[in-house]
Design a protein around this nucleic acid. Structure first.
Length: 492
RNA sequence: GGCGACAUAGCCAAGCGGUAAGGCAGGGGUCUGCAAAACCCCGAUCCCCGGUUCGAAUCCGGGUGUCGCCUCCA
């Protein structure tokens, strides 16, 4: 498996530090407002990475932090009238609920900065003792000049950073690029006691402290958006490696590109933010995932209604294929010999291969998705054959479902839950209705046949007559959202 | 001003030296009582200009354009 490493600027062969175990730290959010699509991209991407690594046999230990001590939280706290930590907790929970609805499997741990102040203070004390940090008037700063490799992640030198001069002027700092490890408390702000007086941690140190605590001084992958490369991750390396002397702190730095909208960066000031909640209210979670995965994680993704529309259609196509296979599996017709259909078998093997080669090549999800669609086309093309070979249908369904479940963009109909509140009784009633309708069809009583189909449609049951029999599935009566995969065939 | 990324059919998007995956949309067929689903056929020489090479969308140089970072930010 090859992974692009920001540190070296190249794709590298991936090998975990410990055999069979992959340790991942993903930079999470600062919970001070509802999360938007830009937050959903890394959440879904890392979920897929995790699923794939587990799929190929690794044990994954992944954590994602919440920065719950921060200027923005303090500001939002004042305007919302909620204590800072409560406000952060509220939005953190909201975020977790939303990504859960997006099908993201929970990570092992979501550590919060506020709960690791002790570890942070210990780390700062060591940095001071080692001459990498200094205290000035209650603040503690990291000395960038004390870490000769400063800039190695973002590929720039201290000299290159001066010209732009977008550096805050702070008389107290020894070097303009020195950054705060600890900030002296200001009135009204949350603060903790420390050897340097009351105060709070700087932004970057929490990640160094928490990753060290839960993953060790050197771990496999560290993720985050590209905008975090500098200064956040550059500073993390400096702190962690200066603190422990262990290098590298992170073996593979993996950064995702951002989500834009109409070619512009999504930001509150431009007023073009689309929240995860809004997305979930409007589109099926599966389609949101397909959309987010339709571009490689290292290329910017432009949000658009058209893009979502395409993703919705794509998901429907996938689910229809899965549902059909599920219906064929349940077919009780006897298998006429264990024959194999060559073109199908070839397509299946090729799809499997392409899927894995794509995922192994720096998590190329668009390539993996293409492999899935290739297979779906072949499967669809041989529906009649599959309908009379349930064992083969089950076999291909297994394979297709495995691929699709790594991406989380469709369900195995055999495992899917029925529609909310639906019981087996509903299924039986629909089947009964369709059997009666079938009699009408045989008598060419199209008026009755069409009326039944229309009535069922109003109830959210989509009826389709095809060459392999009549199928039905549960849909959302308002939208096209396929809720359950009750595809059952009524034989002609 | 510095650092970096990207530019492929109407839209989205793979490709990493051997003559362009996939999805959506569109057109034409097949199947079908109708509808739907599905299948088949149709579309790009890869921003521009040079260069390297037997051969480049893929490598190098120069343009043009877009975007990101350099300050909080997924």
């Amino acid at each position: 498996m090859r992974v692009f490493n920001t540190l070296t600027g190249r794709k590298e062969e991936f090998t975990p530090g410990e055999r069979g175990l992959v340790k991942i730290y993903v930079c999470g959010i600062t919970p001070y407002a509802p999360s938007h699509i830009g937050h959903a991209r890394p959440a879904v991407f890392w979920d897929v990475v995790r699923r794939y690594l587990e799929y190929v046999g690794y044990t994954v230990r992944a954590i994602q932090n919440f920065t719950d001590i921060d200027d923005k939280i303090i500001a939002a706290s004042a305007s919302e009238g909620l204590p800072p930590l409560e406000l952060a907790d509220k939005y953190a929970r909201q975020y977790l609920n939303e990504i859960s609805e997006l099908g993201v499997k929970p990570m092992q741990l979501y550590p919060k900065a506020s709960e690791h102040v002790g570890e942070i203070i210990t780390m700062i004390e060591t940095l001071i003792a080692k001459g990498h940090a200094y205290e000035v008037g209650g603040d503690v700063y990291f000395s960038v000049k004390s870490f000769e490799e400063y800039g190695k992640l973002s590929h720039r030198t201290l000299e290159e950073m001066k010209p732009g001069a977008r550096v805050e002027i702070n008389e107290m700092k020894e070097h303009p690029m020195d950054f705060a490890l600890w900030k002296a408390a200001k009135p009204g702000e949350p603060s903790w006691p420390s050897p340097w007086g009351n105060g709070r941690p700087g932004w970057h140190i929490e990640c160094s402290a928490m990753s060290a605590k839960y993953l060790g001084l050197s771990f496999d992958m560290h993720g985050g958006g590209t905008e975090l490369i500098f200064p956040h991750h550059e500073n993390e390396i400096a702190q962690s490696e200066a603190f422990s002397g262990v290098k590298p702190m992170v073996r593979y730095w993996v950064h995702n590109e951002l989500v834009n909208i109409r070619g512009e960066k999504m930001s509150k000031s431009l007023g073009n933010v689309i929240t995860i909640r809004e997305m979930l209210n409007k589109f099926p979670a599966r389609a949101i995932r397909l959309f987010l995965l339709s571009a490689h994680y290292r290329t910017p993704l432009n949000f658009s209604e058209e893009g979502m529309e395409a993703a919705i259609r794509g998901c429907e196509r996938l689910q229809t294929a899965l549902d059909n296979l599920g219906a064929f599996c349940r077919d009780s017709k006897p298998e006429p010999g264990g024959s194999v259909l060559e073109p199908l078998e070839d397509a299946y093997e090729k799809a499997q291969l392409t899927f894995h080669e794509s995922m192994q090549d720096d998590f190329n999800t668009p390539g993996a998705i293409a492999a899935v669609f290739d297979l779906v086309r072949e499967l669809n093309a041989h529906q009649e054959w599959l309908a009379s070979h349930p064992a083969s249908a089950a076999n291909y369904l297994d394979g297709l479902a495995r691929m699709v479940s790594v991406l989380g963009i469709a369900d195995d109909p055999r495992k899917a839950q029925g529609g909310a509140g639906d019981s087996a009784l509903v299924g039986e009633l629909v089947n009964l209705t369709l059997e009666l309708r079938q009699k009408a069809r045989q008598e060419k009583d199209w008026a009755t046949s069409d009326a039944v189909r229309a009535r069922l449609g109003k109830l959210g049951i989509l009826v389709e007559d095809g060459p392999t029999g009549t199928k039905w599935k549960r849909i959302n009566p308002d939208g096209g959202d396929v809720r359950a995969s009750g595809a059952t065939r009524i034989h002609a």
